[in-house]
Design a protein around this nucleic acid. Structure first.
Lengths: 158, 158
DNA sequence: TACGATCGTCAACGTGGTTGACCAAATAGT
DNA sequence: ACTATTTGGTCAACCACGTTGACGATCGTA
């Protein structure tokens, strides 16, 4: 039975994980803003990623993000208004409306991937590539696989 | 100039950090609910922690959490309604209203600390104590020190 | 004493989440 | 072929959390 090291109380771990997440996301969006994507919010990037290049429907998007289809629809509305997504009628099913990324959406998506790679590289430069890889492997070992719930605002707040 | 390993794209790192954070917080609140604190939301635990055992004012709480005093006041309202906080007039300054934890609040705070220690221990059992410590040290090295902004819902969503 | 800074609160609003209800369209069953 | 059920999208009402602006009440100070 190991006792708790008073130097390393358990509550620090989640704070550090959140700080790491937030640092990456803030750095990403600072850089995206510099590259012209000033309106993009953290949430939007994840939604864009979830829509992907093939497109989806609002209902399916909701399932992917772990939120209701109504919430997904609202977020799509906003991203449509911002010019990142578009709705297209599905010729094979008049009920469905396909949600697709626009050229601007794909640009944001591509730039995000590039910046994320750069940020990871920056961490690797600071910590060493093996330490970053170890962190990823360790986190994978203690978190459910293929996890992707994006209802962060509602989850955290309530 | 290192190139990006296609096996380890940069966007995975923030997802894993978020997943780690969320896993810990979800496990904490599942256990707290089991111990009688069913109404506590993730945000509330942090607010409780920020109030501390000495108490504060809404304005100071807002500064600690990185949110406006109005937002802090609203959250205090909710935690008062839930029985975790109480407001007391400051006898030395009629403008100020001290926010203090109730007995129930202190109970939740204490249980949270215990559960967080247990969860960290569980990670140490899985990964090895050195790996958890390394993760903490590494995260500390790449995040701003003494960071504590808790405006997560508004930050992420917008 | 009068003035400026501070504390708490009220009001209005934006954003993201929920559930319930509903219509239209596709699919399944008799 | 005609119902009956399921499915996709939207509208409406609501809650939680954040924002800014305004405004009394109180404190500290010039």
């Amino acid at each position: 039975m190991a006792t708790t090291d008073p130097e390393r109380p358990g509550f620090l771990l989640p704070l550090l994980l959140l700080a790491g997440f937030r640092t990456l996301i803030d750095d990403l969006h600072a850089e995206l803003a510099r590259q012209g994507h000033t309106e993009l919010r953290p949430l939007h990037g994840f939604v864009l990623q979830a829509v992907g290049v093939e497109g989806t429907t609002a209902t399916e998007l909701g399932q992917r993000l772990g939120i209701s289809k109504q919430a997904a629809g609202k977020t799509v509305d906003r991203l449509v208004a911002l010019g990142y997504l578009e709705r297209v009628d599905d010729p094979r099913d008049a009920r469905r409306k396909l949600v697709r990324t626009t050229a601007r959406g794909r640009d944001g998506l591509h730039r995000s991937a590039v910046v994320f790679d750069q940020l990871r590289q920056r961490w690797a430069d600071t910590l060493g590539p093996d330490r970053v890889a170890a962190m990823e492997d360790d986190l994978r070992a203690v978190t459910p696989a293929n996890w992707f719930r994006l209802d962060v605002p509602g989850w955290f707040g309530g």
